[in-house]
């Protein structure tokens, strides 16, 4: 899970793994790893989800965290347009570290769509990344499962 702080990385993992959501913001300091077993097309897959602390001036994402990964999410917060910039930077970091591995772009907090700063034109431009863009909500659970399954499928290919 990559993205700047407070975009909802931890919330998305919590929604997916434990089906819970909290409004309270408890920033992740350090790295948190969760495990989830899923059934996918009759295969049992164990996902190791690395919830990496938010990228900002306090904590930088280290290449070492990315090295062993077989896929990743870039998470943006629809209500904060400036989350795009960090997202794109992290995407570049991964590509420069491990090359082209599957990823999915998540624009989170779709339940707050009327307060979004990220516009349809922005999304149109993000399509240049050439990957799936999924609008999620960790709060309502919208498209969360779908997003994880989508990435898993891409990783298994």
């Amino acid at each position: 899970m990559l993205g700047t702080f407070a975009v909802g990385k931890t919330s998305l993992v919590q929604r997916f793994v434990n089906s819970i959501f909290s409004e309270k913001y408890h920033t992740t300091i350090g790295v948190k790893i969760d495990q989830k077993k899923i059934e996918l097309d009759e295969n049992e897959v164990t996902l190791m989800l690395w919830d990496i602390h938010g990228e900002d001036e306090f904590q930088k994402v280290k290449p070492a965290y990315i090295l062993g990964s077989s896929g990743y999410f870039i998470v943006l917060d629809g209500t904060r347009r400036n989350t795009i910039e960090v997202g794109l930077k992290l995407q570049k970091l991964v590509e420069n570290t491990v090359g082209k591995i599957p990823f999915v772009l998540l624009i989170n907090k779709v339940d707050l769509k009327e307060h979004w700063e990220i516009t349809d034109e922005d999304i149109e431009r993000l399509k240049a990344l050439n990957t799936d863009i999924i609008l999620t909500s960790a709060k309502t659970g919208d498209a969360v499962e779908e997003a994880f399954l989508k990435l898993t499928r891409k990783m298994l290919k």
């Binding site: 702080f5 407070a6 913001y25 408890h26 920033t27 300091i29 938010g54 900002d56 306090f58 904590q59 904060r80 400036n82």
Partner: peptide, 20 residues
């Protein structure tokens, strides 16, 4: 022991969100 303590980063990030 947490180098820049949890609370400091938490506060800084909350402030940043508030500022935005």
């Amino acid at each position: 022991d947490i180098p820049v303590s949890q609370r400091t980063i938490q506060k800084a990030r909350e402030h940043q969100l508030l500022y935005e």
